[in-house]
Design a protein around this nucleic acid. Sequence first.
RNA 1: GCGGACGUGGCGGAAUGGUAGACGCAGCGGACUUAAAAUCCGCUUGGGCAUCCCAGUGCGGGUUCGAGUCCCGCCGUCCGCACCA
Length: 854
Amino acid sequence: MNERFDPSQADERWQRAWDERECFRADDASSKPRSYVLEMFPYPSGRIHIGHVRNYTMGDVLARYKRMKGFEVLHPMGWDAFGMPAENAAMEKGVHPGSWTRENIANMKAQLKRLGFALDWSRELATCDADYYGQEQALFLDLYEAGLVYRKESAVNWDPVDQTVLANEQVIDGRGWRSGALVEKRKLSQWFLKITDFAEELLDGLGTLDDWPEKVRLMQENWIGKSQGMQFAFTLSNGEKLEVYTTRPDTIFGASFVAVAADHPVAQAVAENSAEAQSFVETCRAGGTTAAELETAEKLGFDTGLTARHPFTGEDLPVYIANFVLMDYGTGAIMAVPGHDQRDFDFAAKYGLPILRVVAASAEDAGKPFEGEAEAGDGICVNSDFIDGMSVAEAKAAVIARAEREGWGEGKTQYRLRDWGVSRQRYWGTPIPFIHCDGCGVVPVPKEQLPVELPEDVDFSTPGNPLLRHATWKHVDCPKCGKPATRETDTLDTFVDSSWYFLRFASQPDDKPFDREEIARWLPVEQYIGGIEHAILHLLYARFWTRALKRIGKLDVAEPFASLFTQGMVTHETYRRAGTNEPAAMDGEGDFDSDNEPASKWLSPEEVEKRADGVFEKATGLPVEVGRVVKMSKSKKNVVDPDQIVATYGADAIRWFMLSDSPPERDLPWSEAGIEGCGRFVQRLWRIFSQFDAAAQGEDKALDRKRDQTVAAVAVDIEALSFNKAVARIYELASAIEKAEPSASRSAAIRALLLVVAPMMPHLAEEAWATIGRGLVADAAWPQVDAALLVEDEVTIAVQVKGKLRDTLTVAKGTAKEELEALALASDKVQRALDGAEVKKVIVVPDRLVNLVA
RNA sequence: GCGGACGUGGCGGAAUGGUAGACGCAGCGGACUUAAAAUCCGCUUGGGCAUCCCAGUGCGGGUUCGAGUCCCGCCGUCCGCACCA
């Protein structure tokens, strides 16, 4: 063996060997137990960033480990290839989104290969392939036939300059993020998926996802937002009915006014006859949408002059248009109970409306005044006629029962979850396979005509969706009547693409989206790994698609991802020239720089030099302030390039760094010193492997034990994704081997060390295995352990006096209580600590400790 | 405001209610070398600077023979949601 391990030639050689042997190709016909390991596929932005490296390294270690354990592993990779950045590039650089995307894919694939990931590239897919999106169109039509797809008018953020719809996060202070134009609310006919049909199922399903982070399940639960209450109708003074929804029917006797949203038909009707009302409604609509504005937003209302008759008291309650009532939740109208709801309280205080107490701690407190705020808590009902004295829960049931009996209201369950709008007025996405015909209406494209392919010749020189103004593409004959008609020019939200890619990985026939039997063999994904930023949308949509496809008989799985792991970010120190303050816009989230604070004040790690007397800018020698450790981002220049790290230290070193030290769910601080340490450890292992001697004789029982304990512990740690702990174990075994004298045991330990390191540092492992083992280590089995060796025969026991450690004893495992007690009392240190005091009580935990209580 | 997570050496972090600080990084001392790099050995929570003793896991209480771990109350940091009736 050479003196040093040289990744610059070894890495590529082994990567080629794995490719040529198709080591990581998953065999659909295999009789082995199966394991589907999946990481969230990347958007092809052009370059892999360090977060990808962390994500994919974790999955790779697990996939390689599972292979060694005898599983048939499916570990695929693909590209979430549709989306806006490609169109932005087209507008800025004049490149076609397709060629831009494919070039990026090629670059990133090469980068992934250089990291040595054990991926089945034969199943690679890009969502912009017509093969893929054509099948997606077929699924979309299936869902349409099943009634799970519909069209409705919906308000969107419309950028009048760019002629496009903006997502909420693209609207900054009411202006388009790109054009800076004031964004308008526009009503467009949009496609929707009926995710609300699955609200209850998706909520229930969370209960089965034991191996998902509690945090993610909670976020989804909140997002679905189930609430139970009562919907009922007030009769208005104009004779109309006004439906309201409340979760607190128990407080109905405390209702002192009624409020409707600005967009509510009642408000609209009032506005038609009143300029004042009209202007108030417009103020509400213009109301800011940013978090800060909402927080400080004053409760505002407009008295319509109408009244609503209270169903029990017959009292006439004033009806207001209120800015805090939302049209798209419940019925867009509420009964307001100021005493027991803070918003209603604020409103009532402002407009001098009665604040009534109908819930109190006890009957004696029925007259207790409010102390400046609403009381939303539990208690018993007071001042409430027939429900007086009931608990809140009892009263809810009683009021609902009475309303239902009398026929003016009913118990109702509400969800915060809304249907999923999937229309995007863009080019670079999956065309929605429908045709608009003047005679026949909206007609699905016949399946045999799929895929509806995107036209290649598109023009991005003017704003707006190029599909809309394409000369020929949208003009087709109606499939039903044959008359001239037009294609739908909207494309699908890219979250649709990522809602089923894990199915297509497992099965990709030419003639249908996937084969049901093959899916049943691979799914659910055993371990899914990705960023927490997808906790809600992607993961909820994927769960929804899976359930929807199951409902229409395409699938047999309910939940796509059995176990989910959300990894932390990779962070780095920030550097900036001394004296340049952090701009206001950088506070909080803002990833953009404000106008008066140039981005150039941030320095990249390469631009600074760390010396004993501080940190300085290399070019100028000026002092540098070391800022907070934050997520790597281009704007703060605290990024490192994975390619450069690989070029300098090799793939195994960066992989090892990704796994070391920090628990995988937490943030990982990148440091130059850290990666250097990893590079040194690669060489240290190489030296250890070089010392393997098949002919060595002799037994080293302690090392044998350490070896098998390490193998067993690393297996447990990898399965729990506790890579940092596995890494620590490996360091320990490496040290033990270095300290040991040559022996057959030592050689066996070296061999075992190589094998447990192999999933983490596959290139180094292959290079060493070439002389130590047979074949490729990628095909080797995880080492067997001798269960008898795992158990220590000697244990060190703590001896405490009054709970304080005074001595330790090394004894045979299983030593009797009485003997331990005697040994403890015989200790000089113990006697000194006792100082003649009488031992009143002795606690002995066998193999652990003796505690003498004086 | 609501919900959640987390506070352990200079840093990242280990610790089924049972020897706190494993392992790594950084630092210090030494060996090797003409020298450096690399490598190897040792030390590294604070204090008294002695085999040893005292204190110590954000702060204050509590349960327990024994608490980083369990309970109660604070403080701080981070994340998510946000007028959802």
